[in-house]
Simulated assay, not measured.
Amino acid sequence: MNSSFDSYSDFFRNTECGYRNFAQEHRKSQGRAPFSMLLVESQPHNYIDPALNDTLLILPTSVESQCNWNWTINDRKVKTKAEVNRMLIVPPNVQSIWEVDAHRTLLTLCIPNSTFRSVLGTNCPRQLGQALWDLSADTWEDEYLSTAMRQLWLSSQSHEPIDAIMNEGLVTSIIACLMKKAGVHSGEHQPVAFPEWRVRKLHTFVQQQLAEDISLDDMADATGLSRRQFSRAFSAQMGETPFRWLNRLRIERAMVMLKESDVALYRIADECGFSDQSHFSKAFKQTVGVTPAVWRLEHRSS
């Protein structure tokens, strides 16, 4: 497919592109912070988008029930459910593959690399795609960004000078918000290695595997980081080591079972991932201050 388009908006309307069959509306603003926007009635499809010099911020405004939204960017494959207001970034200069099996209405903001550089000046990351990379790993909600995008769509319809000023302000604040969300600050051109989406992903993995022996490599693999990257990033972000955090989750599950059931201690130890009852009792007392039996008696009687 021809990838020599000036913008994503131009690609989307091209006669070679399957998207041309979708009902769509386009708006564009030049000024000192150029951008374009699309409102699209997206149908089920399996398409490849070329690498372009635009960062895409995609906001679902309506979604058919149980819509699967799957994408591949730089060999990273993601499968999720589309939800209203859970947005996604597509970094610039990367090819992406999309598989969608139901109807969605998407509001998409296309910000050229040149606009990022104009707004951020010397604070613009030299590798913009790398800086935004983590935000493309999952969908996420941001009330400010979703509100700003909707307002930008409304104000970009007007050609009044005052609305052009508003558009510049909105685009500037959206870019600043994205940089902050990606962990890029003044003079820091590397994204935070352990953002919130990685915390959620790790927590889900651990909760599903809590009865098993979970290694540092297992946790690193679950977050898509190397063992060394994971250990350093986790401790810096969470303020404790991965194993201390894991032990706390095991203890918390044990507390629920102690309080809400009559399950034997050896069974609780097994289901919470401790090697045996002795290991469980020792770890519990070190963390809580009393043995599991004493804690159960105190909390069941209350």
Score class of each variant (00 low, 15 high):
residue 149 M to C: 15
residue 147 T to E: 15
residue 56 L to P: 04
residue 61 T to K: 10
residue 147 T to A: 15
residue 241 T to M: 03
residue 96 S to D: 06
residue 163 D to V: 08
residue 85 N to W: 13
residue 213 D to E: 03
residue 128 L to S: 01
residue 245 W to S: 00
residue 125 P to Y: 08
residue 26 H to Q: 12
residue 215 S to L: 01
residue 73 I to H: 01
residue 183 G to E: 07
residue 271 E to I: 13
residue 268 I to F: 12
residue 148 A to W: 15
residue 40 V to R: 05
residue 135 L to P: 15
residue 10 D to I: 06
residue 72 T to L: 01
residue 123 N to E: 15
residue 137 A to E: 02
residue 12 F to I: 09
residue 177 C to Q: 14
residue 243 F to S: 00
residue 258 L to I: 07
residue 200 R to H: 05
residue 248 R to I: 00
residue 81 K to E: 10
residue 23 A to R: 12
residue 169 G to D: 14
residue 51 A to I: 00
residue 243 F to K: 00
residue 16 E to M: 10
residue 64 E to C: 11
residue 298 E to V: 09
residue 59 L to I: 13
residue 200 R to I: 06
residue 10 D to N: 09
residue 301 S to G: 11
residue 8 Y to P: 00
residue 123 N to V: 09
residue 133 W to V: 01
residue 87 M to Q: 12
residue 78 V to Q: 03
residue 280 F to R: 03
residue 153 W to E: 09
residue 288 V to I: 08
residue 60 P to G: 06
residue 286 Q to I: 08
residue 210 L to N: 00
residue 142 D to P: 11
residue 41 E to P: 03
residue 115 T to R: 10
residue 46 N to D: 11
residue 160 E to K: 14
residue 39 L to K: 14
residue 267 R to K: 15
residue 5 F to C: 04
residue 257 M to Q: 10
residue 267 R to V: 14
residue 259 K to C: 14
residue 21 N to C: 14
residue 164 A to K: 12
residue 179 M to L: 13
residue 247 N to C: 01
residue 13 R to D: 10
residue 281 S to M: 11
residue 85 N to C: 13
residue 119 V to M: 07
residue 8 Y to F: 09
residue 65 S to H: 10
residue 48 I to Q: 02
residue 86 R to E: 13
residue 116 F to V: 04
residue 212 E to R: 09
residue 268 I to D: 04
residue 42 S to M: 07
residue 119 V to P: 14
residue 10 D to K: 02
residue 275 S to V: 11
residue 195 P to G: 00
residue 159 H to R: 13
residue 149 M to G: 15
residue 196 E to C: 07
residue 92 P to T: 05
residue 283 A to G: 09
residue 297 L to T: 12
residue 39 L to Q: 14
residue 168 E to Y: 08
residue 59 L to F: 12
residue 14 N to R: 07
residue 161 P to G: 05
residue 278 S to C: 13
residue 53 N to D: 01
residue 37 M to N: 09
residue 216 L to K: 03
residue 94 V to Q: 02
residue 2 N to C: 08
residue 206 V to W: 00
residue 251 I to L: 04
residue 106 L to E: 08
